[in-house]
Design a protein around this nucleic acid. Structure first.
Length: 455
RNA sequence: GGUGCGGUGGCGAAGAGGCUAACGCCGUGGUCUGCAAAACCACUAUUCGCCGGUUCAAAUCCGGCCCGCACCUCCA
């Protein structure tokens, strides 16, 4: 499976809305991999653009320096969200010769024309223009909200190559010094790394027009064959009913959220809505998302603790109860796959994961894990971690980074507290627990002794 | 003006002709427990924006209306 997703223009920190498509594709990749497909995922960086140039001029540094800085920050945010790296991250500035070649080809095939060092795409040269967004050139002309450049053949013609102005990064070309237009880089890089007719092309729904429409026009105009087989567009993240965008000024940065909530909680939050639907982002909904994720994490911890050191090989002969439970597990797996097969319905799949969680918790609550029960429970754990792993909600720890480091200290405190409890000195015992809670550590008394975890 | 999307319990959110309208959070009662926590069990929408229609059957299909949003310009 080959996937191309439009990446960011690195001129600022990522906000929650920026992160959504990458999270969606992270889950789709994981699922396709689980299903046995080999996946190649390409995501670009548009590292030369008006906004980057403006920012560079403001700060008196190069456009490259701005791009490098925010690409670096992009990776920090995505790592914190548990989003796996793409196979290739092509950058526009590394592909100028490829872009020039494609512009040349478009001119040769009659789709492009030159005016004073600019090169434009002639939209009327492609009869199907508008097929992705379902618009006709007539509709577009009628709705045009910008002043039309009178030199162009058609008002909707767009730039393939822009003659450079003073103070802008520029590259030499057959048409003079200039830089690529906005859409050409994705056509060039997708075709270079995945080839014509690749499987999935993704991005935010705002990119359908004009960006993706123009990518198709360029690619199919130059090639005469299909560019991408399937288009996958995610819905927007809004704030109070209005689109979250830097231009609106209502952005919540990824790192702002992660300061207060764990990465998996934000994943959970976004995956509980189908990717095509809009999300009305509300920071007040994050605690519920965190609680939901914690429920999964608690189960994961409980399973690992319970099964540690147990013999989990399934015996030849199984009891009816065991068989029944294994059948239930299989049903959950099928439901999960059915949900994901229905246009990657992560919200429904998450529901299935919780049904599985309830069954596993019941199994744990039912008591002993002797004999076959350990093996059966281990099968349940494996399924839980597999499905949870597809959504990226299990196997991620919960701030266990420093766990080993403080383990001993807490062990000691817990022991002292046990002694206090043995003396029925509950005031001391409760004080220890409360103070630990203030430090963000939850100490719990269980039948098999105390245990702890991060809040 | 053109093109799309959406309105489901206190909140979030699945479901798109027929199983009790998933699931999570919150809340209530119970089990367990020194107290908590975690977990389990039970309860929590006779009803899916409004009005008509089609059908044996509609949250799901059709028509009208009311709201909200997005795209048509840079945007994930």
């Amino acid at each position: 499976m080959s996937i191309y997703t439009c990446g960011v223009t690195p001129y600022n920190y990522c906000h929650v809305g920026n992160a959504r498509p990458y999270l969606v594709w992270d889950v789709i990749r994981r699922y396709l991999t689980y299903k046995g497909y080999s996946v190649r995922y390409v995501q670009n960086f548009t590292d030369v653009d008006d906004k980057i140039i403006r920012r560079a001029n403001e700060e008196g540094v190069s456009a490259l320096a701005i791009a490098d800085r925010y690409i670096n920050e992009y990776f920090k945010d995505m790592d914190a969200l548990g989003i796996a790296r793409a196979d290739v991250y092509p950058r526009v500035t590394d592909h100028i010769p490829d872009i020039i070649d494609m512009v040349k080809r478009l001119i040769d095939t009659g789709h492009g024309y030159v005016i004073d060092g600019d090169v434009y795409y002639w939209v009327e040269s492609l009869p199907e223009y508008g097929k992705l967004s379902g618009r006709s050139l007539e509709d577009l002309k009628a709705g045009a909200r910008i002043d039309v450049d009178e030199r162009k053949r058609h008002p909707m013609d767009f730039a393939l190559w822009k003659a450079s102005k003073e103070g802008e990064p520029a590259w030499d070309s057959p048409w003079g010094l200039g830089r690529p237009g906005w859409h050409i880089e994705c056509s060039v890089m997708a075709l270079k790394y995945l080839g014509p007719g690749f499987d999935f092309h993704g991005g935010g729904s705002d990119l359908i027009f004009p960006h993706h429409e123009n990518e198709i026009a360029q690619s199919e105009g130059a090639l005469g064959t299909t560019f991408a087989r399937y288009w996958v567009h995610n819905g927007f993240v809004n704030m109070a009913g209005e689109k979250m965008a830097k231009s609106v000024g209502n952005v919540v940065r990824v790192r702002d959220v992660l300061e207060k909530y764990p990465g998996p909680a934000l994943r959970y939050y976004m995956l509980s809505t189908h990717y095509r639907s809009p999300i009305d982002f509300n920071l007040d909904d994050m605690p519920a998302a965190q609680r939901g994720w914690e429920r999964l994490r608690n189960l994961e911890d409980n399973l690992e603790r319970t099964l540690a050191g147990q013999d989990t090989t399934l015996p030849e002969q199984l009891s009816d109860d065991a068989k029944k439970f294994l059948t239930t597990l299989e049903e959950h797996r099928q439901s999960f796959e059915k949900s994901m097969d229905a246009d990657f319905n992560t919200a429904q799949a998450l529901g299935v994961l919780f049904e599985l969680a309830r069954d596993l918790n019941s199994y744990l609550a039912a008591g002993g894990i002797s004999g076959e029960r350990a093996a059966v429970l281990a099968a349940g754990r494996d399924l839980f971690l597999t499905l949870g792993g597809i959504l990226g909600l299990t196997g991620v720890g919960g701030g266990q980074q420093d766990r080993a480091l403080i383990e001993g200290l807490i062990q000691l405190v817990a022991e002292l507290r046990q002694e206090a409890r043995a003396r029925k000195d509950y005031a001391t015992a409760d004080r220890v627990r409360d103070r630990l809670a203030e430090l963000g550590i939850v100490l719990e008394d269980t039948a098999s002794g105390p245990r702890w975890q991060y809040k």
